[in-house]
């Protein structure tokens, strides 16, 4: 827009229509322009009641259960308080939540990792929505057997995921029954590197074809990635398939990208 009058960007800033350069420029301007501050406040005041003009619509059938189960399947972002983001500003709200994505640094290949994940998941309360990092100081080899012998936690299902045509990669997945609920552990290797905001996502698909987001991960430089998530979706599910997709952003609530790896459960 007009270079000579930054004030003219205000409405586009309000609607988050500015590119990054103009947005930064306008934010700096806003800090020092009293007129724009007043106008922005006025705009918020003038539009405050407009949402209430919406005609009441009955929500979709089963929406509450679907939404609450995907909400509770999300990891909690513990780093938020350090950043004090300006969430009221339109610009920050819809950004992918990068902290939802765990990149795993060094890891051992194949079997060793599943065991590490499994053992590490024993330390977690499933309801705490905790996440963890792995390192080479993980539990000893053979943990998977120990766990089964101890009898409190049981590997219910363990599968190898094969790459679909045109993609590379392999993965192992295990479903672990704990006293407090079910956990899903996935480890992948030989994955292609990602570009931009892309992320790998793990999905569980039940017999009725409903897809549930289980977790998001980014591969390390060796093309390896892993994720462990509680499975506490509401209702009974007869799981049919596990799949890994390549998503354009880490925030897809339903798969939009290609299936890279899959297996029947």
């Amino acid at each position: 827009m007009n270079e000579h009058n930054t004030c003219d960007l205000l409405l586009d800033y309000f609607n988050d229509c500015l590119n990054e350069i103009d947005k930064t420029k306008f934010k700096e301007h806003l800090a020092s322009c009293n007129e724009c501050q007043v106008e922005l406040e006025e705009l918020q005041m003038l539009t405050e009641d407009l949402p209430l003009s919406s005609e009441p619509i009955e929500p979709n059938d089963g929406m509450k259960n679907r939404i609450l189960s995907s909400v509770f399947a999300q990891p909690i972002d513990n780093e938020i308080n350090e950043q004090t983001p300006e969430y009221l500003q339109t610009s920050e709200v819809s950004k992918p939540n990068e902290s939802n994505v765990r990149s795993i640094g060094t890891m051992r290949r194949n079997k060793g990792l599943i065991q590490s994940l499994l053992a590490a998941s024993l330390l977690l309360s499933l309801s705490a929505n905790a996440y963890f990092y792995l390192n080479d100081e993980g539990p000893n080899e053979g943990a998977i057997d120990t766990v089964e012998e101890e009898g409190t936690d049981e590997v219910v299902n363990r599968v190898e995921l094969a790459a679909t045509e045109g993609f590379s990669g392999t993965a192992q997945a295990a479903m672990i029954q704990k006293e407090s609920g079910m956990a899903l552990v996935v480890q992948a290797s030989d994955l292609n590197q990602l570009t931009g905001s892309e992320a790998y996502q793990v999905w569980l698909i039940d017999k009725s074809g409903s897809k549930f987001r289980a977790g998001t991960f980014l591969p390390n430089e060796n093309g390896e990635g892993a994720v462990s998530f509680p499975i506490d979706y509401k209702g009974e599910h007869d799981w049919d398939t596990i799949a890994v997709t390549l998503e354009p952003t880490p925030t897809s609530e339903q798969p939009q990208g290609d299936i890279i790896l899959a297996s029947k459960l």
Binding site: S53, E55, L68, I76, Y87, N97
Partner: peptide
């Protein structure tokens, strides 16, 4: 729905709002 005129999209939006609320302590 007033904004999108689509039910499925509206559900996705509500879900995203609650995910933000749940996963970002201190967001409000």
């Amino acid at each position: 729905f007033r904004v999108t005129r689509r039910r499925e999209l509206s559900e996705e939006i509500v879900q995203e709002v609650f995910i933000k609320l749940w996963t970002k302590p201190g967001i409000y």
